[in-house]
Protein backbone atom coordinates (compact mmCIF):
# COMPACT_ATOMS: atom_id res chain seq x y z
CA UNK A 1 0.00 0.00 0.00
CA UNK A 2 2.67 2.46 1.09
CA UNK A 3 4.88 1.53 -1.79
CA UNK A 4 2.05 2.05 -4.25
CA UNK A 5 1.35 5.46 -2.79
CA UNK A 6 4.93 6.55 -3.32
CA UNK A 7 4.83 5.25 -6.85
CA UNK A 8 1.66 7.19 -7.66
CA UNK A 9 3.20 10.43 -6.48
CA UNK A 10 6.42 9.72 -8.31
CA UNK A 11 4.78 8.87 -11.61
CA UNK A 12 2.53 11.91 -11.59
CA UNK A 13 5.48 14.07 -10.55
CA UNK A 14 7.62 12.77 -13.38
CA UNK A 15 4.82 13.22 -15.94
CA UNK A 16 4.31 16.77 -14.68
CA UNK A 17 8.01 17.57 -14.86
CA UNK A 18 8.42 16.24 -18.41
CA UNK A 19 5.30 18.04 -19.58
CA UNK A 20 6.40 21.31 -17.95
CA UNK A 21 9.78 21.10 -19.64
CA UNK A 22 8.23 20.38 -23.02
CA UNK A 23 5.70 23.19 -22.73
CA UNK A 24 8.30 25.70 -21.62
CA UNK A 25 10.33 24.93 -24.73
CA UNK A 26 7.37 25.10 -27.08
CA UNK A 27 6.38 28.41 -25.53
CA UNK A 28 9.88 29.76 -26.01
CA UNK A 29 9.71 28.93 -29.71
CA UNK A 30 6.18 30.13 -30.41
CA UNK A 31 6.04 33.25 -28.24
CA UNK A 32 8.12 35.45 -30.57
CA UNK A 33 5.90 34.33 -33.47
CA UNK A 34 2.76 35.20 -31.54
CA UNK A 35 4.14 38.61 -30.61
CA UNK A 36 5.13 39.21 -34.21
CA UNK A 37 1.63 38.37 -35.38
CA UNK A 38 0.14 40.77 -32.86
CA UNK A 39 2.40 43.59 -34.03
CA UNK A 40 1.68 42.73 -37.64
CA UNK A 41 -2.08 42.97 -37.06
CA UNK A 42 -1.69 46.39 -35.47
CA UNK A 43 0.59 47.57 -38.26
CA UNK A 44 -1.85 46.43 -40.94
CA UNK A 45 -4.76 47.99 -39.09
CA UNK A 46 -2.99 51.34 -38.87
CA UNK A 47 -2.10 51.21 -42.54
CA UNK A 48 -5.74 50.54 -43.31
CA UNK A 49 -7.15 53.43 -41.28
CA UNK A 50 -4.35 55.95 -41.74
CA UNK A 51 -2.97 55.16 -45.19
CA UNK A 52 -1.04 58.41 -45.51
CA UNK A 53 1.09 57.79 -42.46
CA UNK A 54 4.60 56.60 -43.25
CA UNK A 55 5.64 55.98 -39.68
CA UNK A 56 3.94 56.22 -36.35
CA UNK A 57 4.69 56.75 -32.70
CA UNK A 58 2.97 54.72 -30.02
CA UNK A 59 1.56 56.51 -27.00
CA UNK A 60 -0.87 55.51 -24.28
CA UNK A 61 -3.43 58.17 -23.47
CA UNK A 62 -5.83 57.41 -20.62
CA UNK A 63 -5.44 53.69 -21.28
CA UNK A 64 -6.17 54.14 -24.97
CA UNK A 65 -3.52 52.91 -27.38
CA UNK A 66 -2.83 55.86 -29.67
CA UNK A 67 -0.56 55.74 -32.68
CA UNK A 68 0.43 59.17 -33.93
CA UNK A 69 0.78 59.00 -37.69
CA UNK A 70 3.70 60.91 -39.23
CA UNK A 71 4.49 61.63 -42.85
CA UNK A 72 7.90 61.56 -44.56
CA UNK A 73 9.05 64.80 -43.01
CA UNK A 74 7.94 63.78 -39.54
CA UNK A 75 4.90 66.02 -39.57
CA UNK A 76 1.89 64.85 -37.64
CA UNK A 77 -0.95 63.97 -39.99
CA UNK A 78 -3.40 62.14 -37.78
CA UNK A 79 -4.12 59.60 -35.11
CA UNK A 80 -4.87 55.93 -35.14
CA UNK A 81 -6.39 54.68 -31.93
CA UNK A 82 -7.78 51.49 -30.55
CA UNK A 83 -11.38 51.57 -29.48
CA UNK A 84 -12.48 48.60 -27.43
CA UNK A 85 -15.78 47.89 -25.80
CA UNK A 86 -18.61 45.45 -25.38
CA UNK A 87 -20.44 44.18 -28.45
CA UNK A 88 -23.37 41.81 -28.69
CA UNK A 89 -21.44 38.69 -27.68
CA UNK A 90 -18.04 39.87 -26.59
CA UNK A 91 -15.46 42.58 -26.87
CA UNK A 92 -15.22 44.39 -30.17
CA UNK A 93 -11.80 45.83 -30.82
CA UNK A 94 -11.59 48.45 -33.53
CA UNK A 95 -8.66 50.43 -34.87
CA UNK A 96 -9.84 53.86 -35.97
CA UNK A 97 -8.02 56.63 -37.77
CA UNK A 98 -8.74 60.35 -37.57
CA UNK A 99 -7.21 63.55 -38.87
CA UNK A 100 -5.01 65.52 -36.53
CA UNK A 101 -7.79 67.96 -35.59
CA UNK A 102 -9.98 65.02 -34.60
CA UNK A 103 -12.80 66.30 -36.77
CA UNK A 104 -12.98 63.55 -39.37
CA UNK A 105 -12.45 59.82 -39.35
CA UNK A 106 -10.09 58.45 -41.98
CA UNK A 107 -11.28 54.89 -41.56
CA UNK A 108 -11.92 52.04 -39.16
CA UNK A 109 -10.72 48.47 -39.10
CA UNK A 110 -12.30 45.77 -36.95
CA UNK A 111 -9.45 43.82 -35.40
CA UNK A 112 -11.29 41.49 -33.09
CA UNK A 113 -14.90 40.52 -32.68
CA UNK A 114 -16.92 37.42 -31.87
CA UNK A 115 -20.30 38.66 -33.08
CA UNK A 116 -22.88 36.36 -34.65
CA UNK A 117 -21.57 34.99 -37.96
CA UNK A 118 -23.61 36.27 -40.88
CA UNK A 119 -25.18 39.06 -38.83
CA UNK A 120 -23.11 41.01 -36.32
CA UNK A 121 -19.88 39.66 -37.72
CA UNK A 122 -20.59 41.67 -40.86
CA UNK A 123 -19.12 44.69 -39.08
CA UNK A 124 -15.84 43.26 -40.40
CA UNK A 125 -17.02 43.61 -43.99
CA UNK A 126 -15.57 46.29 -46.20
CA UNK A 127 -18.88 48.02 -46.89
CA UNK A 128 -19.54 48.68 -43.23
CA UNK A 129 -15.97 49.70 -42.47
CA UNK A 130 -15.81 51.99 -45.48
CA UNK A 131 -18.94 53.84 -44.39
CA UNK A 132 -16.91 55.34 -41.55
CA UNK A 133 -14.47 57.00 -43.91
CA UNK A 134 -14.68 60.80 -43.91
CA UNK A 135 -17.28 60.65 -41.17
CA UNK A 136 -17.65 63.92 -39.31
CA UNK A 137 -16.79 63.41 -35.64
CA UNK A 138 -17.00 66.98 -34.36
CA UNK A 139 -20.29 65.91 -32.86
CA UNK A 140 -21.10 62.32 -31.94
CA UNK A 141 -21.50 59.60 -34.55
CA UNK A 142 -25.09 58.50 -35.13
CA UNK A 143 -26.54 55.49 -36.91
CA UNK A 144 -29.67 55.12 -38.99
CA UNK A 145 -31.66 51.97 -39.67
CA UNK A 146 -32.95 50.75 -43.02
CA UNK A 147 -32.30 53.99 -44.88
CA UNK A 148 -29.35 55.76 -46.39
CA UNK A 149 -27.58 58.22 -44.10
CA UNK A 150 -28.38 61.85 -44.90
CA UNK A 151 -25.94 63.68 -42.62
CA UNK A 152 -22.16 63.52 -42.61
CA UNK A 153 -22.04 62.10 -39.09
CA UNK A 154 -24.33 59.17 -39.78
CA UNK A 155 -23.70 55.58 -40.78
CA UNK A 156 -26.18 52.94 -41.81
CA UNK A 157 -26.48 50.07 -39.35
CA UNK A 158 -26.34 46.51 -40.64
CA UNK A 159 -29.77 44.99 -41.14
CA UNK A 160 -30.47 42.53 -38.34
CA UNK A 161 -27.38 43.55 -36.45
CA UNK A 162 -28.29 46.87 -34.92
CA UNK A 163 -26.72 45.99 -31.59
CA UNK A 164 -23.34 45.16 -33.11
CA UNK A 165 -23.44 48.29 -35.30
CA UNK A 166 -24.49 50.44 -32.37
CA UNK A 167 -21.72 48.95 -30.20
CA UNK A 168 -19.08 50.00 -32.72
CA UNK A 169 -20.54 53.51 -32.87
CA UNK A 170 -20.91 53.83 -29.09
CA UNK A 171 -17.39 52.56 -28.43
CA UNK A 172 -15.99 54.98 -31.00
CA UNK A 173 -17.92 57.92 -29.53
CA UNK A 174 -16.65 57.14 -26.06
CA UNK A 175 -13.05 56.70 -27.13
CA UNK A 176 -13.06 59.83 -29.28
CA UNK A 177 -14.52 61.84 -26.40
CA UNK A 178 -11.88 60.68 -23.94
CA UNK A 179 -9.13 61.17 -26.48
CA UNK A 180 -10.23 64.67 -27.45
CA UNK A 181 -10.34 65.85 -23.85
CA UNK A 182 -7.00 64.28 -23.07
CA UNK A 183 -5.31 65.77 -26.13
CA UNK A 184 -6.78 69.20 -25.50
CA UNK A 185 -5.24 69.25 -22.06
CA UNK A 186 -1.90 68.35 -23.58
Amino acid sequence: MDKNYVRMVMVLGIIGAIVALALANVYKITDPLIQKNRKQTIKEAIKEVLPEAKTYKHKTVKEIDVYIGLDDTGKKIGYAFKSEGPGYQGTISVMAGANKELTKLTGIYVMEQIETPGLGARISEDDFQKSFRKLNIEDIIEYVKNKEPSKDNEIKSITGATISSRSVVDNLNKTIDVLRKALKNG
Binding site: G16, V19, D31, I34, N37
Partner: peptide
Protein backbone atom coordinates in the same frame (compact mmCIF):
# COMPACT_ATOMS: atom_id res chain seq x y z
CA UNK B 1 -2.10 16.13 -17.95
CA UNK B 2 -0.65 14.55 -21.09
CA UNK B 3 -3.67 15.52 -23.19
CA UNK B 4 -3.64 19.07 -21.82
CA UNK B 5 0.00 19.51 -22.71
CA UNK B 6 -0.54 18.41 -26.33
CA UNK B 7 -3.53 20.72 -26.56
CA UNK B 8 -1.43 23.62 -25.32
CA UNK B 9 1.23 22.80 -27.91
CA UNK B 10 -1.41 22.73 -30.66
CA UNK B 11 -2.90 26.00 -29.42
CA UNK B 12 0.45 27.79 -29.28
CA UNK B 13 1.40 26.47 -32.71
CA UNK B 14 -1.86 27.65 -34.28
CA UNK B 15 -1.53 31.05 -32.61
CA UNK B 16 2.02 31.42 -33.83
CA UNK B 17 1.70 30.10 -37.36
Amino acid sequence: VIIASYVTIADLYLKGS
